[in-house]
Write a protein that binds this DNA or RNA. Structure first.
Length: 935
DNA sequence: TGATTCACG
DNA sequence: GACGTACGTGAATCAG
């Protein structure tokens, strides 16, 4: 039944490369059980093809179809412009062997599979589209690549298979501001950083569309460029004419690609059962094989006998229905809610997400709660949405209709959320737990997908919901911007209409549940279950407690300091302007650099990549020996920093209700396992300078209490001594010696009792340098000594402590072989750049050397923090802050000794019993009415 | 928004 | 042989 392609025919063209990359990034790196062949992308590709074929029913089904691939990296565009696509990342190593398999997969589905040496897939798609259109048929291009949008129109449309949205002429106009026939003109002007198409500098899509619409076409625009009013644009277009014309050639798709087949060869054919199942079975896709066999009504072939290799690294992909925001339920009555609660009890777990009026958990109000029990089964319980005015445009202060009373809903939910037998799953549950705590609900027990992702993949990507959804579910959630807007006209969530809110909010719970089903089994496969269970999950509630307590900060002290700083700065500024002979913005590094190096003609001006002079503190310090101006600027900068970052903005963070400052710790913020502190950052309160340290006087204890600080002494060097197994360092620590003096003594042969501060200082710099992955250059710069001398120190160090060099080499090798390095407690820190070439690998190598040391220290204090609540239970003390190797408590005056003893014991024994460290961990303690005194 | 600078461990 | 180099963070500010 051969059908001549023509009117009534419908051609589907699938962008194969886009499918492959989507599949690759959407799935964790799966391997074939029998031989470890990477097949994650092939698996995703087959699933996508299968889903595609399944969806092809009804009157709109294609009559002809082909998957089009790129072939060869050199195309005619490289002949036009040798930098075309030059900044493309190389194909990932584990994807390369999968490419031929995707061709075989396409053939197994009995879909035409086409490519042409020296041509991009886009050109073949263009040629086929033109042929089909000219023959009177319809075309759907399955891709979201904007480069293909120039083809839309005259029966040609695009389809974004992921979002399931069609892109027609209007869609193209929305994206480019011009019709499809002018898309190349806009692209030629705007350029494309991904493909390295140069375009016209400084002109983006918006401006380009404006110009094209005004002048009709690119050619007319360039010919009449003199008429452009804005001088900068006019100049750009005139100067870059050639480059723009070249860009147009690069983005213009070729409709005359010489093809060795015709449209008729692309006719839709049913797959051959045996071929398809044979291929899927060979790939060992058990679930998909079985599913397709069932659909075809045949027995699935017997899976090949496999001996599990390396513990079996190929979990089956969890099958889930499509995410559909329109399928979610809005819960408005107690009966409805009860039905969901019953379902939760049936399951034993539930994914939840709370919607609030903002981001500050200590201040915002609860607006609604969403619940998901299964993929696709999610609801939203709106609680305090505001009613719209009559015309529906503005929200009022009255509650919207159709919502359960807040108390009634919370009374129903509280028993579930607090039930020991029901697992509550969230993405960043610390946030939700803090909110609900303010409404009297203590959520427990919890699982957290953000923390799972962190335990699994620290160093590979960030762990926000959008990232995870895109990577692991291949789905882009509804952007919150769509509901709230942005900038000045942004609204709060309670002003969002309930129906819109349901789509967004319930989707988040749905996604969270799906992520949980995807990530949880991975913990075991990647051997990080212990990390998650002992270092991540139990820390979350501890941090929540600390954040809710906050630390008392005295506004008057800060305010007085701000005024004093302002006065001093004004005086310095006047002096600086006097010395410069003109007024300028002292806070502008650019203007300062020009004053110093151009106007005053000082030596040593170095320009960075942006063409501005460097004016960092090290540069100014060198200049300060010769001139007064840079010295004054250094003083001014110090004051400016203290004022703006600390004395001024800390005041704004004092909670009006508690009079305390409540930071947020980001548990997944630092790849090494450290915490990060934000809003405000309380981990970088000044201490090194006398003037800055006084800011700590504003951090105070309540009346009758004291602040108590305990910090690990030299914890990273102790860990280095243990991990690299350095006998001399271990011994020095065991005997309680001054470690830097001991190092100096060992290196330079100076007896300890004859040690000079200068020699000790140098040894200290080397000790720190080692932790950071030392280089002669770096040490020279730090100590301000000649590079050769610094290298000599390092050589001597490695000679005296050969274990250090071994540690560095073996860690680097491990990182290269495995893609990650690990702490003593099994935390994995991924180092994908370590195999790169160029300067990136240097950074990655040093980071890999540092990560196990910094990360092990981070693990130890985490363990201490997790045990702390129980250890100080019953004592009148609260843990308030963590600063990497220091914990700060607020304690009744009478109990300082008891709490110090209890907390110290926990901290010093925190590595045990999981890890036996060969050196003692030592904790120093201090206390006082304020943080300055306690430290 | 990105670069620069600087506060901390 | 040249090149560019300490590790990990967050916040404020300037400039385009």
């Amino acid at each position: 039944m051969t059908q001549q392609f023509g009117k009534g025919c419908h051609l589907h063209l699938i962008d194969g490369s886009a499918f492959i990359f989507r599949a690759y990034h959407a799935l964790p790196p799966l391997t074939r059980k029998s031989d470890g062949l990477p097949i994650g992308a092939v698996s995703g590709f087959c699933n996508m093809l299968h889903r595609y074929v399944e969806g092809n029913t009804g009157p709109d089904a294609p009559t002809h179809v082909a998957v089009i691939f790129d072939k060869g990296s050199h195309t005619f565009r490289n002949d036009l412009y040798d930098l075309y696509k030059a900044n493309r990342e190389a194909m990932p190593e584990d994807l390369r062997p999968q490419i031929p398999l995707t061709r075989r997969a396409t053939e197994a589905f009995n879909i035409a599979c086409k490519e042409l040496e020296g041509y991009e897939a886009d050109d073949i798609i263009a040629t086929l589209s033109c042929q089909a259109r000219d023959a009177g048929g319809r075309v759907t291009i399955i891709s979201s690549d904007k480069d293909l949008m120039q083809l839309v129109g005259g029966g040609v449309e695009m389809l974004d298979a992921m979002k399931n949205t069609r892109i027609d002429v209007e869609g193209v106009e929305a994206k480019f501001g011009v019709g499809p026939d002018r898309v190349v003109d806009v692209q030629a002007l705007a350029g494309d950083s991904v493909d390295n198409v140069p375009g016209a500098p400084g002109i983006g899509i918006k401006t380009a569309a404006l110009l094209i619409n005004e002048y009709g076409s690119l050619e007319d625009l360039l010919d009449r460029a003199e008429e452009i009013k804005q001088p900068k644009r006019r100049q750009t277009l005139i100067e870059n004419r050639e480059q723009i014309e070249l860009s147009k050639k690069l983005v213009q798709l070729d409709c005359e690609t010489p093809l060795d087949f015709t449209l008729d060869d692309l006719e839709v054919k049913d797959p051959d059962t045996e071929t398809l199942l044979g291929f899927l079975n060979e790939m060992e896709f058990r679930t998909l094989t079985k599913r397709i066999a069932d659909q075809m009504g045949v027995e699935p072939p017997a899976p090949p006998e496999t001996e599990t290799l390396g513990g079996g690294d190929a979990p089956e992909q969890v099958e889930m229905p499509e995410i559909d925001p329109d399928s979610y339920e809005t819960v408005t009555t107690a009966d409805q809610l009860q039905t969901w609660i019953d379902r939760i009890y049936e399951r034993g777990y539930v994914a939840i997400d709370s919607e609030t009026t903002g981001l500050d958990e200590m201040q915002v109000d609860l607006v609604g709660i969403c619940i998901a029990t299964d993929p696709g089964q999610a609801c939203y319980v709106p609680l305090t949405h505001k009613a719209a005015e009559g015309d529906g445009l503005f929200a009022t202060e009255d509650l919207a209709e159709g919502q359960m009373p807040l108390n009634e809903a919370l009374d129903l939910l509280k028993p579930v959320l607090e039930d020991d037998a029901i697992l509550k799953i969230g993405q960043n549950m610390k946030y939700d737990a803090k909110i609900l705590k303010r409404y009297g609900i203590s959520v427990a027990p919890i699982d957290d997908t953000m923390l799972m992702s962190y335990a699994l993949n620290a160093g590979l990507h960030t762990h926000g919901m959008d990232t995870l959804s895109d990577r692991y579910l291949g789905h882009q959630p509804i952007p919150i911007k769509e509901l709230l807007g942005s900038g000045k006209s942004m609204i709060t969530f309670d002003k969002v209409p309930v129906d819109k809110a349901t789509r967004y909010a319930a989707e988040d719970a749905d996604i969270t549940l799906r992520l949980w089903q995807t990530l949880k089994p991975q913990l075991h496969v990647k051997k990080v279950t212990t990390v998650y269970e002992t270092l991540e999950r139990p820390l979350s509630p501890v941090l929540a407690q600390m954040e809710m307590h906050g630390i008392k900060v005295d506004r008057d002290t800060l305010s007085r300091m701000s005024n004093a700083f302002a006065q001093k700065m004004a005086g310095l500024e006047a002096e600086i302007h006097e010395l410069a002979g003109e007024t300028f913005n002292v806070g502008s590094p650019k203007q300062l650099g020009e004053i110093l190096f151009d106007k005053m003609g000082l030596e040593g001006g170095k320009k960075g990549k942006t063409g501005a002079y460097a004016t960092g503190a090290d540069v100014l310090e060198d200049l300060a020996t010769e001139h007064d101006l840079p010295a004054r600027v250094l003083d001014w900068r110090q004051l400016s920093k203290l004022k703006s970052t600390y004395t001024d903005s800390l005041q704004e963070h004092i909670h009006p209700g508690t009079g305390r400052v409540h930071t947020s710790y980001v548990q997944t913020g630092a790849n090494t396992g450290r915490l990060a502190s934000t809003d405000p950052n309380l981990q970088n309160i000044p201490v090194r300078s006398e003037e800055g340290r006084r800011i700590r006087e504003a951090f105070i204890a309540e009346e009758g209490k004291l602040l108590l600080s305990l910090d690990y002494s030299q914890i990273e060097l102790r860990i280095l001594a243990h991990i690299a197994d350095i006998p001399q360092l271990k011994e020095a620590f065991a005997e309680g010696q001054d470690i830097h003096a001991a190092t100096a003594s060992e290196m330079f042969g100076v007896p300890l009792d004859e040690m000079t501060p200068e020699v000790r200082r140098q040894a200290k710099a080397i000790n720190f340098g080692v932790i950071y992955g030392i280089s002669g250059f770096g040490l020279a710069r730090n100590l301000r000594i000649p590079r050769g001398e610094a290298q000599g120190f390092i050589d001597r160090y490695f000679e005296r402590f050969p274990g250090i060099k071994d540690y560095m080499n073996s860690t680097t090798e491990f990182g290269k072989a495995n893609g990650y390095v690990a702490t003593l407690f099994g935390r994995r820190i991924h180092t994908p750049d370590i195999a790169a070439k160029g300067p990136r690998s240097g950074f990655a190598r040093r980071a890999a050397i540092n990560a196990p040391i910094q990360g092990t220290a981070a693990d130890i204090i985490r363990r201490a923090m997790i045990r702390m609540p129980e250890a100080i239970e019953g004592l009148p003390a609260k843990m308030l802050l963590q600063v990497h190797d220091e914990l700060i408590f607020e304690v009744d005056e009478s109990a300082v000794e008891d709490v110090t003893a209890a907390a110290r014991k926990v901290m010093e024994s925190a590595a045990a019993p999981a890890v036996k460290i060969d050196v003692p961990l030592v904790v120093d303690a201090g206390h006082g009415k304020n943080w300055a005194e306690a430290h």
